[in-house]
Design a protein around this nucleic acid. Structure first.
Lengths: 220, 220, 220, 220
DNA sequence: CATGAATGAGCTTTCATTCAT
DNA sequence: CATGAATGAAAGCTCATTCAT
C-alpha cells in the first residue's frame, strides 16, 4: 500500500522481499537528503547511491530514472507532512486550534528543512515533477479542511470575522512559517542577525500568532 | 562605478572599453537569466556564454569562476531591488505608506521572479555566496529604515500599536509577498488552483494589506 | 594478485572478469607508455585512453584519478625492475657478481627508457606520488641486500677493501648506469657525439666496470 | 652581446631600453623557475607571466613562443653553468684539480636544482629544444678541455694511468654528481633515508672523490 | 535479483596564442 | 612600445544511463 511508485514495488513478506524493501527505502532516504542538500541538478545519482550504500544501478532498478526518483522523494515528504499534521491534536476552541496550527507549522518547517529545500527546488523546476505525480495531489485537502473548520467554528462563536477564505488564511500562515526557515540564510546576512539562533524561532511564532489572531478576529 | 568585481573591471571610455563593457554586461545579464531559470548547478557556463553570444573563456576572463559570476549576479539583483525600492514614492500618511510598500513588494517579486529563484538558490547553498560578497551586505538598511520610520510616525499618530519591531513587520510583509510568487507552482498543484492567473495577485495583495493593517493597528 | 589498487580491482576468473582485467591492463600499459613519453602533465587522459582503445571514463572507473593512475604506473615499473633483478643469475665470485650487476643495470635502463623518464618525472614532482604509494617502498631491500652480500664476500676473500657501505656502492653503480641513458639527448648535443649509437653503451659499461672494480679493490 | 635570441633583442642604452631589458629579464628568470618546477607542459605561460609580474602578451613580444622561451631558458642555464665553471680556480696539482672539479660539480647541481630539472625536462623531450639552439652547443668544450688538461698533466706526472678518455672521465664525474641531486626524491623513498639532509652531500662528494681517484690512478 | 562494466555527452576550467588598437 | 580583449581547442573529471550477464 505504501509502494505505489509506478516503476517498481516490492511485494510479499519473505526475507528477500524485506531486504529488497530495505534497499529501496535506503535509496529513498538517501535521495531525500541529497536532493534536499544539493538540489535536483547538484544531487547526483552517485552521491545518492553511495550514501545509501547501494549501487547506481539499483536506483534505476527501483525507480527507473533520476526524475522518477525525485518524484518519489516529493511524494514522501508530502506524505510525511500530511501524516504529521493529521497526528497533531485538534483543539476545540477555535483560537487555540489556530494558535496550535501556526506553532505546528513554524516548528515543522524548521525541523524539516529538507521539506523546504525540496519544495523550493521543485518550484525552481516550475512544478514539473509534482505535475507528474498522481499521489502529490491527494494531500491538499486535509490542511484546508482543518482551517475551514476552525474558521467556521470561530465565526459561529463570534471570535473570527466573517468572509474569510480558508485558502487565504492557509497561505497567510504557511507563508510566514515557511519563509522564516526557507530564507534564513539570506535573511541572516541581510538583517545582520542569525535567524537560527535559540529563541529566534519561538519569538517569530509568537509574533505570527499574535498578528494572525488580530488579523482574523471579529471587529469590536 | 558599477564595475567593482574583484577579478576584472572595465575602465575608460574608448570604443574598445565600451565594447568590453558590453561583453561583460551581456554575460552578467545572461547569467542572471540562466541561474534564475536553472539554478546554480543546472546553469552551465556554456548555457550562459551562448546566451550572451560570447565564449566560455570570457566568463573566466571577466569573472574568474562560476562562483564569482554567481556572486556578481546576486549583487546585481540586490542592487536593482534596492534601487527600485528607493525610487518608490514615499507617502506621508503611515497607513498609505505601509499599504504602498506591501503592494510594491507583492508586485516586485512577481515581476522579478529571477530575484526569487536566485534567492532560493542561494538559500539552498546556505548563503555561501552572499557570505563572500562585500557588497551584498550594504543593501539591508534602507528597507528596514523605511519601515521603522513608518511605524514611528504611525505610532505617534495613534494608528499603529506601540512595541512593534521593524524587523518583525519587515519579515511579515516580505514573507507573505515573497512566498506567493516563490511557491506558486507547488501551491497551484496543491490548491488545485492557479496562482499566476489574472487577478490572483491583486486579490492576494488586498488580503495581505488588510491583514497587516489589522495586525498592526492600535487597539480601540 | 597484481590488483591491489585501492580504487578498483578485478576479481574472479569468469569471462567478464577476464575482459575487465584486460581493459585495466590495457589502460595501465598505455599509461606507462604515454607518461614515459610525455611526462605527467604532457600525458593526457585522452592520449592514454585512446592508446588503450578504451574510454576516458574507464580510467576513472578503474583508477579513480590521473594521479592514482600515475602511482599505479610507478608501482608497475618498480615491480618489473625488481622482478628482473631477482631473475638475474647470481655469480659466486664477488668480482664476477659485481661485474654482472653493473652490466645488468647499464643494460636495463637502456632497454627500459620508460623506467628512466618516469623516475625523472616523479623527481620533477618531488616524489609526491611515490610518497603516496604503499607498494613502492617494498622494492628497495633486494638490490641493497645483494650488494651488501657481494661486498661482504669480496671483503672476506680479500678482493674488496673494507669499510665500503652498500648504499654508496649502490649509488655509484646506479648513477653511472642511469645517467648514461637518462641524459643521453642533452649529452649527445653537448658532446657532439651520439650516445645511443651501436657499441657506445657497451664501451660505457666496460669503462664503468673497470672503474668500479678499481675503486673498490683492496690495496695491494 | 647577451641578447642574441632570434625573436627580439633589446638594443641601446636609453631609459626605455633599460626597462624593456628588465621586463625581458624578469620573464626569463620567472620562466626558468616555473619550467624548473613544473616542467615544460606543466609550466604555463600564465604562471610565468604572473610570476614575472608582466603579461602573457609580453612573452610573445619578447620570445615569440613558449618553445622559444624554453630554448632561451636552456641557453641561460648552460651559460651560467659555463661561467661558474670558468670562474672556479684551477689547481696546478692534477689530483687537487680533479678533486676540486668533482666537489664543484657535486655542489653546483645541488645548489642549482633548476639546472637539473630543466635538463631532465629537455631529455624527456629528446633534446628537441637544444637541437634548435645555436648557442647551446658552444658550451661543451671548456669542461672537456679542462679534464683533458688535468689528465694529460696527471699522466705525465705518473699519478694517472694512461689511456683515459676525457669524455669518459667527464661522464663518470658528472653522472655521480648529477644523479645524487637529480633523483634525490625517489632515492630518498627507495633507500628510506633522506639524501638532502645536512652532511649527506659532503659524504657523497668524499666518496666520489675517493672512488674516482682510485679508478684513475696509475698502477703501482 | 543483483551488479560489475561500459558508454558518450557534458561539466568547469586552463591552455597557448592572436587580434586590434 | 605595450596591452586589454578575444579565441577555440583541450584539459581532467562527472554526469545519467544502459549493457550483459
Amino acid at each position: 500500500m505504501a509502494n505505489t511508485t509506478k516503476t517498481k514495488a516490492v511485494r510479499g513478506t519473505g526475507a528477500r522481499e524485506a531486504s529488497a524493501q530495505a534497499t529501496r527505502d535506503n535509496i529513498l532516504k538517501a535521495a531525500t537528503r541529497i536532493f534536499a542538500r544539493y538540489g535536483y541538478d547538484g544531487g547526483s545519482i552517485e552521491k545518492i547511491s553511495s550514501l545509501a550504500k547501494s549501487h547506481d544501478r539499483m536506483i534505476y532498478y527501483y525507480f527507473g530514472s533520476k526524475e522518477q526518483l525525485f518524484i518519489a522523494v516529493l511524494e514522501g515528504i508530502y506524505q510525511r507532512m500530511d501524516e504529521a499534521e493529521a497526528k497533531a491534536p485538534v483543539r476545540a476552541d477555535p483560537i487555540e486550534a489556530l494558535t496550535a496550527l501556526i506553532r505546528f507549522k513554524v516548528a515543522y518547517y524548521r525541523r524539516h528543512p529538507e521539506f523546504v529545500t525540496l519544495l523550493n527546488t521543485e518550484n525552481l523546476h516550475k512544478g514539473r515533477h509534482v505535475a507528474k505525480s498522481a499521489k502529490a495531489r491527494e494531500f491538499s485537502s486535509n490542511a484546508l479542511d482543518l482551517i475551514a473548520d476552525i474558521l467556521r467554528r470561530g465565526e459561529a462563536q463570534g471570535c473570527f470575522r466573517p468572509g474569510l477564505r480558508p485558502r487565504d488564511v492557509y497561505l497567510l500562515i504557511v507563508s510566514t512559517s515557511y519563509f522564516f526557515t526557507s530564507n534564513r540564510f539570506t535573511l541572516s546576512a541581510f538583517l545582520g542577525e542569525p535567524l537560527d539562533g535559540p529563541g529566534a524561532l519561538e519569538e517569530w511564532a509568537d509574533f505570527v500568532v499574535d498578528c494572525v489572531l488580530r488579523a482574523l478576529r471579529a471587529q469590536d
